[in-house]
C-alpha cells in the first residue's frame, strides 16, 4: 500500500502526467463534438451509418491520454534526457526503496489503473453532454454497460502501454504503435480486412466492449475477455523481463 501511494505521488509530480490527464479528460469530448458536427447532416437526414458510434468515437480515439500515462509511468524511470543528469536513472533509486521488483511493478500498475479509470470517468462526463449539445434529440442512448466497457477499454489500454514500455524501456515505440493504432487509420483495422484473426487484436477486441461495428464478431463480454488476455500476456512478459534484467543495462 505504501509503495502504491509512493507511485501515485511519483506520477503526479511529473508534469507530463498532468498533460496526459488534460488530454485524457478533454480530447474525447472535443473529438466527439467535431465528429458529431461532421455527421450531423447525415444523422438528421437519417442516412448516417455511423449513428450508434456518435459520441463513443471520442472515447475510442481519445485514449491518447491513458497511452501517454502508461508510457510515461515507466519511461520516466529510465529517462536520461536531461542536460544536467550524467546518465542517472530513477529506476535504480526506485528499486532500492521498494526492494521487491514484483511489488514495484504491481504498485505502479495499480497507480496507472486508478488514474486511467478516473480519467475515463471524467472523459465520459464530458463526452455525454457534449454530444447532446451537438446532436440534441438525435443522440444515441449512452447505456451503462457500454460506458463501463469504455472504462475497461481505457484501463486495459493504459496497462498495455505500461507493459510494452517495461519491455522496451523507451517510450518511443509504444507511443508510435499505440497512438497510430488508436487513431482513424488503425493498422488493426486494415489487417482485419485481410484476415479475420485481426479482430482478436487488443484494440479491435477492446472496442467491441462499447461500440458495435459492422465487421465485429465478438460480443462485448468476449471482447473484454480477449483484451484482458492480451493485457495478461504482456504483463506477465513485463514481469519476467523486469525480474531478470540488470537494472543498469
Amino acid at each position: 500500500m505504501r509503495a502504491f501511494l509512493a507511485e501515485l505521488s511519483k506520477l503526479f509530480s511529473l508534469p507530463g502526467i498532468w498533460l496526459a490527464c488534460g488530454i485524457g479528460a478533454f480530447a474525447p469530448a472535443v473529438i466527439a463534438v467535431l465528429d458529431s458536427i461532421a455527421q450531423k447532416e447525415d444523422i438528421i437526414a437519417g442516412v448516417s451509418t455511423r449513428l450508434p458510434e456518435a459520441g463513443y468515437i471520442g472515447l475510442a480515439v481519445g485514449v491518447q491520454g491513458v497511452i501517454i500515462l502508461g508510457v510515461l509511468a515507466v519511461s520516466s524511470e529510465y529517462s536520461t534526457e536531461s542536460s544536467e543528469s550524467g546518465g542517472g536513472q530513477q529506476i535504480a533509486s526506485s528499486l532500492t526503496v521498494v526492494s521487491s521488483r514484483l511489488h514495484f511493478l504491481l504498485a505502479k500498475a495499480g497507480a496507472v489503473t486508478v488514474i486511467s479509470m478516473l480519467q475515463c470517468i471524467i472523459a465520459i462526463t464530458a463526452v455525454v453532454p457534449a454530444t447532446y449539445l451537438i446532436l440534441g434529440e438525435y443522440t444515441p442512448l449512452f447505456e451503462w454497460p457500454k460506458l463501463i466497457g469504455a472504462v475497461c477499454y481505457w484501463t486495459f489500454t493504459a496497462l498495455l502501454a505500461f507493459g510494452i514500455t517495461v519491455i522496451t524501456k523507451n517510450g518511443i515505440v509504444p507511443l508510435a504503435v499505440l497512438i497510430m493504432n488508436s487513431s482513424f487509420v488503425s493498422i488493426s483495422f486494415l489487417l482485419s480486412k485481410v484476415t479475420k484473426l485481426a479482430l482478436y487484436l487488443p484494440d479491435r477486441a477492446g472496442i467491441d466492449m462499447f461500440m458495435s461495428l459492422s465487421e465485429s464478431i465478438l460480443s462485448p463480454f468476449t471482447g473484454a475477455l480477449v483484451m484482458f488476455a492480451w493485457v495478461g500476456v504482456l504483463f506477465s512478459a513485463a514481469i519476467v523481463v523486469i525480474l531478470k534484467r540488470d537494472v543498469a543495462s
Binding site: 480530447a27 467535431l34 458536427i37 501517454i68 518511443i172 507511443l175 508510435a176 497512438i179 497510430m180 487509420v185
Partner: peptide, 25 residues
C-alpha cells in the same frame, strides 16, 4: 521541445488525430 516523449505526442496527435478530424470538418 528537446524531449522525445512530448515531441512524439505532439507529432502523432497532429498527424493521426487532429489532421483527419479537421479534414472532416
Amino acid at each position: 521541445l528537446r524531449r522525445s516523449t512530448p515531441a512524439m505526442v505532439v507529432l502523432l496527435s497532429y498527424y493521426f488525430i487532429v489532421s483527419p478530424l479537421t479534414m472532416g470538418i
